[in-house]
Computed example of a mutant assay.
Amino acid sequence: MHMLYNSDSFTVVQIDLPPEASAAPDADSRGGYEIVDKFARKEIFIHGVLAQSFKSGVEALIRSEPSEDEIDDFIEGFTSLLQQPLVLH
């Protein structure tokens, strides 16, 4: 687990899970990204094609040396997917 981004509004964590034991030896990890909206107190774990899309968008954004507001605006594009209430243990 690696924290990739943390602002007043959002936290993004990359989570890497090892391939399943029954998967082919060259299978990719089953990881993804957890996105937390601190104000809405909701979160989501994205993986697969959606995670690849998120990663590509972030990589393109980083090349332009964005401000924190620009990064938050990009992440905000995923907030409509946030359904899981944030629960702290």
Rank of each mutant, 00 (worst) to 15 (best):
60 A>Q: 13
43 E>S: 15
57 G>R: 02
65 E>G: 03
6 N>P: 03
41 R>H: 10
17 L>Y: 00
10 F>R: 09
76 E>F: 04
53 S>M: 06
85 P>I: 04
18 P>G: 00
31 G>I: 05
86 L>W: 08
35 I>V: 12
51 A>D: 07
33 Y>C: 10
78 F>R: 08
55 K>Q: 14
84 Q>T: 15
19 P>I: 03
89 H>A: 15
16 D>E: 13
48 G>T: 04
11 T>M: 13
30 R>E: 14
8 D>C: 01
85 P>L: 05
17 L>V: 07
25 P>Q: 10
15 I>E: 14
14 Q>A: 11
44 I>G: 08
12 V>K: 05
71 I>E: 02
39 F>I: 14
61 L>Y: 07
88 L>H: 10
60 A>T: 14
61 L>S: 03
11 T>N: 11
63 R>M: 11
59 E>S: 01
48 G>E: 09
17 L>Q: 13
68 E>W: 02
69 D>H: 09
63 R>N: 07
57 G>K: 01
43 E>N: 15
65 E>D: 13
23 A>V: 00
62 I>E: 15
1 M>E: 07
36 V>W: 09
69 D>P: 03
21 A>K: 15
28 D>M: 12
6 N>E: 13
42 K>T: 12
84 Q>W: 04
44 I>Y: 05
54 F>T: 04
21 A>N: 00
6 N>Q: 10
69 D>Q: 14
74 F>K: 05
45 F>I: 07
72 D>Q: 06
6 N>A: 12
58 V>S: 07
25 P>N: 11
78 F>A: 05
6 N>T: 04
34 E>Q: 15
20 E>L: 14
5 Y>M: 08
6 N>C: 09
13 V>D: 12
16 D>M: 00
4 L>F: 01
50 L>V: 14
67 S>Q: 08
10 F>V: 11
14 Q>N: 13
9 S>R: 14
75 I>T: 08
66 P>C: 03
85 P>G: 04
42 K>R: 15
70 E>N: 04
